[in-house]
Amino acid sequence: MSTPTSTLIELNNLTKTYGQGSAAFQALKGINLKIDKGEFVSIMGPSGSGKSTLMNLLGCLDRPTTGAYRYEGIAVESLNSVQRSLLRRYALGFIFQGFNLLARTSAIENVELPLLYRGIKRAERHEMARRALAQVGLPDKERNTPAELSGGQQQRVAIARAIVTNPSTLFADEPTGNLDSQTTCEIMELLTQLNSERGITILMVTHEDDVAQYAKRTVRVIDGLIDHDQTHHRIAAQ
């Protein structure tokens, strides 16, 4: 991350087809995208246009049907399952559209989970998880399980879990979809801060224009293709 212009992500004619035969559906029809280190990109587009599909591929949660994906110059298709796990563990953070928290597990334990696989000691793990929960504005809900949290609170636990490891790249699939405007603002400030202070590269899917405004660049996906890609100045930074 020395030079701010070095390429982090490079997609070359990436496609993704779900299903087979007559039931086959091409969700991505050839994506070409280049993202530099330290960028904050928002991805927009109508529902069903393939934004989550793209994020899952970028987050190494899924594999493309054809095309090439380079992360820091590494051809991701050539990695085996262990290597991809390790890439996710040490470099990537993912905020799911559907949260995906462990049921019957307290907020703090959910946030600690990725640290457990990093082999971080108990006390430190705990401390880091508490800090992350405080950052997303949930310092008093550590012991609550997902069932005891509101949708917005669950979303914030999911955000805390993604940022607790301080990943190089953060993939956020509609991170503010369930939040009120006040909390949305706070979360967006947090993400902006992570981006500018820690240099975390952020890709964020959103439907809201004012949320997209926090990013310096907006990529619009329509029908499995990139419709347009525009860099702009932040207007809602304050």
Binding site: S81, S85, R89, Y90, N100, L101, L102, A103, L113, Y117
Partner: peptide, 19 residues
Amino acid sequence: TERTREIGIRLAIGATAKE
């Protein structure tokens, strides 16, 4: 079902299949 989803979560945050 629950276990499979749970495994998905663990894999997604960086656990290896072996772990």
